[in-house]
Amino acid sequence: QVALSRTQVCGILREELFQGDAFHQSDTHIFIIMGASGDLAKKKIYPTIWWLFRDGLLPENTFIVGYARSRLTVADIRKQSEPFFKATPEEKLKLEDFFARNSYVAGQYDDAASYQRLNSHMNALHLGSQANRLFYLALPPTVYEAVTKNIHESCMSQIGWNRIIVEKPFGRDLQSSDRLSNHISSLFREDQIYRIDHYLGKEMVQNLMVLRFANRIFGPIWNRDNIACVILTFKEPFGTEGRGGYFDEFGIIRDVMQNHLLQMLCLVAMEKPASTNSDDVRDEKVKVLKCISEVQANNVVLGQYVGNPDGEGEATKGYLDDPTVPRGSTTATFAAVVLYVENERWDGVPFILRCGKALNERKAEVRLQFHDVAGDIFHQQCKRNELVIRVQPNEAVYTKMMTKKPGMFFNPEESELDLTYGNRYKNVKLPDAYERLILDVFCGSQMHFVRSDELREAWRIFTPLLHQIELEKPKPIPYIYGSRGPTEADELMKRVGFQYEGTYKWVNPHKL
């Protein structure tokens, strides 16, 4: 086992960053958080920038500027975001240094004079007029057009580079997404736009490419001749908990499936790229999406959770019991969808996408189930092999396979070949997804960000279904809070070829 401390991990990262040409360590950078008073800024962006600063992973002359409508001070920003920093008493001095680099400007999102004030403020910072500028839009999409237009007109660096990070949702359907994309691309070049999907920053999602293309053993079996089906799962054990009003506007397909799960599907299904260059990788992902037809209604199961009468606390409440959810809402909190990649490698292999709230566990994984062994000599005792990439929690890679049961006879039983990170790298604290992705933006690497043509294809696949749901308002199937979801989803999976045995229990190697 390799035991690495946080300091050692960050030392390795620093070495990698400083050796590259793309990370300008000594240049002045300004990180501007648009929507600095909001939840995302408070819980994710400010803490992430602090962790990067604490670990010495930001360029040395980096300033952080918050911008929002609320009249706040840096002290206010500190008060609301610091509880999420997880700072230790030993880091007190470092924390003071961090907040000394912070400033805040209040202004409207659609007022040109406010942006001119913001620009004057940035120019007044040390070497601010020639600094590289990175704008993070932690804002609702309704203000994107006004904000990007004003940034472009008043706040661009004339000497350094300018980059803009856009948070999902990128529209509600193909038409609104196209409108937003066309607007942003009329102001910024594609190499300046970073559409963030934080799932692409997760260690195991990034590991998929290495697993596939750096190991000879997987190449020959990664196709329709050997793989019976692919299941991509995202499960949350909690409901909307008072935030249903926002969720109800989008629903589970827009929230998770059309982005996170579809991105994971691309990494499983794509061909080997010409290189690890950002556009070479994204070219292959677009090719996969172009091979997927629009979702067919007979390959869809929609569910909505109801309270568990035997549960406790939140578990007793259904989705419609959330006071922020519109009365009688038919918005799905669970969806199972089957897609097919219609190309030579994957023809006929079902890709089953499942996601839901208020389920029995927290889990995100990719599961490849292989065909049955031909010419069975073990009297149907063999179960199908599976390769599982567990994204969260407890990152893991393992192969479910058959071995001989101890004893006199040739009785096979299920076991696993474990390729888990935790076994080799004991207690290594890896940077989280937002840390990686923000560092990628500083480096100018777009590999783990969504390109406009990729986004367009993703919406093309799901828009007809979303429009049909909005028009017909089908009643989702009720499922109990804390269950596996509607049984109809299991029946759909069985119908397209997935075999669920229920006889195997994964042993978490992190707890051995």
Rank of each mutant, 00 (worst) to 15 (best):
N259M: 14
H260P: 15
L261R: 01
M264P: 03
M264Y: 14
L265D: 01
C266I: 04
C266G: 12
L267T: 13
L267G: 11
L267H: 13
V268T: 08
V268K: 02
A269K: 01
A269Y: 01
E271G: 06
P273A: 04
P273L: 01
A274Y: 08
S275W: 03
S275C: 09
T276H: 04
T276Q: 09
S278V: 06
D279A: 13
D280C: 08
D280S: 09
V281D: 01
V281W: 14
R282T: 08
D283I: 03
D283Y: 04
D283R: 06
K285D: 00
V286L: 14
V288C: 13
L289D: 01
C291Y: 13
A297Q: 05
V300Q: 03
V300R: 03
L302G: 00
L302V: 11
Q304H: 03
Q304K: 01
Q304E: 01
Q304W: 00
P309N: 15
G311R: 11
G313K: 10
E314H: 14
K317T: 12
K317P: 09
Y319E: 00
P323W: 07
P326D: 06
G328S: 12
G328K: 06
S329F: 00
S329M: 01
T330P: 12
T330H: 10
F334W: 04
F334M: 06
A335R: 01
V338I: 09
L339Y: 01
Y340T: 08
N343E: 02
E344F: 05
E344Y: 11
W346C: 00
D347P: 01
P350I: 02
P350V: 00
P350Q: 01
L353C: 07
L353V: 08
R354L: 14
A358E: 01
L359I: 05
E361M: 11
R362E: 14
E365S: 11
V366H: 00
L368K: 02
Q369N: 05
Q369E: 05
A374G: 15
G375Q: 11
D376Y: 04
D376I: 07
I377W: 15
F378A: 02
H379W: 05
C382Q: 12
R384S: 14
R384W: 08
N385I: 02
E386A: 07
V388L: 11
V388G: 05
I389L: 14
P393D: 09
E395D: 15
A396E: 15
Y398K: 15
Y398M: 15
T399R: 02
M401H: 11
M402W: 11
M402F: 15
T403A: 10
M408W: 04
F410L: 11
P412T: 13
P412A: 09
L417H: 14
D418R: 06
K426T: 14
K429F: 14
P431I: 12
I438F: 09
I438D: 00
L439V: 04
L439K: 05
D440F: 02
D440P: 02
V441G: 04
C443T: 05
G444F: 01
M447K: 04
F449H: 04
E454T: 11
W459C: 11
W459A: 11
R460P: 00
L466C: 08
H467D: 13
Q468C: 09
I469T: 13
E470K: 02
E470A: 09
L471R: 09
I477L: 11
Y479R: 02
I480F: 13
Y481W: 08
R484T: 13
A489W: 05
A489S: 15
R495C: 07
R495G: 08
V496T: 11
V496P: 11
Q499W: 14
Y500F: 13
E501N: 11
G502P: 15
G502Y: 13
T503H: 14
T503F: 14
Y504D: 14
W506N: 13
W506M: 14
P509V: 08
P509H: 07
